[in-house]
Simulated assay, not measured.
Amino acid sequence: MGKHGMILFGHGARDARWKEPFARLAAKLAAARGDAGPVGLAFLELMTPDLPTAVAAQAAAGCESILVVPVFFGQGGHVRRDLPEIVARCQAAHPEVRLRCAGAVGEDDAVLDAVVRYCLAAEAAPD
Score class of each variant (00 low, 15 high):
A61R: 10
L25S: 07
E45C: 03
L51T: 01
Q75W: 13
A26E: 04
R80K: 15
S65P: 11
A54Y: 02
P21Y: 10
G62I: 13
G62C: 12
Q75E: 15
P49E: 05
A31I: 03
F43N: 03
D50P: 08
L46K: 11
P38W: 02
L67Q: 11
R33E: 09
T48Q: 14
L44C: 01
F72R: 00
P38S: 14
P21Q: 06
Q58Y: 01
R80T: 13
I66K: 09
P84I: 02
G77N: 03
R33V: 08
D35C: 09
P52A: 05
L46Q: 12
G40T: 11
T53Q: 15
K28M: 12
A57E: 10
L29D: 11
F73S: 05
F72P: 00
P38E: 14
L67T: 15
F43Y: 15
L41S: 09
C63N: 14
C63T: 03
A61T: 05
L29Q: 14
D50M: 12
G40N: 12
V39I: 08
P84V: 01
V68Q: 09
H78Y: 08
L51V: 01
A36R: 15
L67E: 15
L25Q: 12
F72C: 00
L29T: 15
R80S: 12
V55P: 04
V69E: 02
P52Q: 05
R81T: 15
D82I: 10
A42L: 11
F43I: 07
A26K: 12
G40Y: 10
L46F: 14
I66P: 06
T53V: 13
A54M: 08
D82N: 10
A30C: 06
V39G: 09
R80M: 11
R81V: 14
G40K: 11
R81Y: 06
F43R: 02
A26D: 05
Q75F: 13
P70H: 00
A57S: 06
M47C: 12
G77F: 07
A59V: 06
A60G: 09
A23C: 07
V68E: 10
R81N: 14
P70R: 00
P49I: 04
C63I: 04
A36V: 07
A61C: 04
A61I: 07
V55L: 08
L41N: 09
H78M: 12
M47A: 14
G37V: 01
A56T: 09
A26Y: 03
G34V: 14
D35V: 10
C63P: 02
G76P: 06
L83K: 00
D35H: 12
H78N: 08
A32W: 07
D82R: 08
A26C: 09
D82G: 09
E45V: 06
R33A: 10
L41Y: 05
D50T: 15
I66S: 04
A30S: 14
F73H: 07
A27M: 03
A23S: 13
